[in-house]
Write a protein that binds this DNA or RNA. Structure first.
Length: 271
DNA sequence: CTTTAAACCTGGTCGC
DNA sequence: TGCGACCAGGTTTAAA
């Protein structure tokens, strides 16, 4: 389940292998992802050169001369650079062909996407309405406070709304609220400016630490070199229901919010 | 227009 | 061994 740190780790892992390289085409074994992979993908990519590998939210962007390849890893996707003759295994749906190598897209649950877009990438429908990047200067306590000012929904759900800030999934919404000492059930509009400052700072800090650690994972993530991702990174609250809080020893509580699991410490995150 | 709730896609895992 | 229930989360759709 790649969250933003895993996507960024993947980007950094494949970047040096792709930038400046020519694409010879693609092999699509199963084009039935979140949206259909373009049937003419191979012809589109043949002869293109990858100029830059960038990221917007959880979308990886392979910027080429005639267009941009958007890659979303969904819940179970991964990218690896492999020798050109590496046999494909189950769930290896797409190969981008390089000279002597390939970029392999694997995605067991096929919640991800591979799309080709011609024109300025910021005009793509999937990227158009996105909020600020959490690690950028465009996101801070002031913008967070402004964005959630009129929201009656719980702060945890507001954090996971891509209009407020992108790339904060379930794991890091839970973790950043713990570090900020804010209960996930608090109405978003009830947060003070100071609490928003704290929360924005903790979101940045926890994401930066995870990227620094090379990405964390539950079980599915494999980095670009094919090494296993970090299993069971030590989270403060995520997936720790009934276990003692690392700060105060109180059992971590699990509740459901918007059909998702929320974890928090009732003592460190008072209502 | 904004905000909120819920359905959808798939495969791995767990309990029986 | 098989089967149903459940879970993961970004996006879309529907509803208010």
């Amino acid at each position: 389940m790649p969250e933003l740190p895993e996507v960024e780790t993947t980007r950094r892992g494949v970047q040096s292998h792709l930038e400046g390289r020519a694409l010879r085409g693609a092999i699509v074994r199963n084009g039935s992802l979140r949206w259909p992979v373009p049937p003419d993908l191979s012809a589109r990519l043949a002869g293109e050169t990858v100029r830059a590998v960038s990221r917007r939210a959880k979308y990886l962007l392979l910027e080429c001369d005639s267009g941009t390849l958007l890659i979303h890893l969904g819940m179970s996707g991964s990218l690896r650079i492999l020798a050109a003759d590496t046999p494909a295994q189950k769930h290896d749906h797409i190969d981008l062909l390089l000279d002597g190598q390939l970029l392999r897209y694997r995605d067991p649950r096929r919640f991800g996407a591979v799309l080709w877009h011609i024109g300025p990438i910021e005009t793509h429908p999937l990227l158009q309405a996105l909020g600020p990047e959490p690690l950028s200067a465009d996101f801070d306590g002031a913008t967070l406070h402004q964005a959630i000012g009129k929201r009656g929904s719980p702060i945890k759900l507001a954090l996971m709304d891509n209009h407020v800030v992108v790339g904060v999934g379930n794991i890091y919404a839970n973790e950043s609220l713990f570090y900020a000492g804010i209960a996930p059930t608090r109405p978003a509009s009830s947060l003070s400016r100071e609490e928003c400052e704290r929360l924005a700072a903790e979101i940045k800090a926890v994401l930066a630490r995870a990227i620094e650690a090379g990405g964390s994972t539950l079980r599915d993530f494999v980095d670009s070199e094919g090494k296993p991702g970090y299993f069971q990174q030590s989270y403060m609250v995520y997936n720790r229901q009934e276990e003692p809080c690392r700060q105060c020893g109180t059992p971590i509580r699990q509740i459901r919010q918007g059909q998702r699991s929320t974890y928090y410490c009732p003592l460190c995150q008072p209502c």
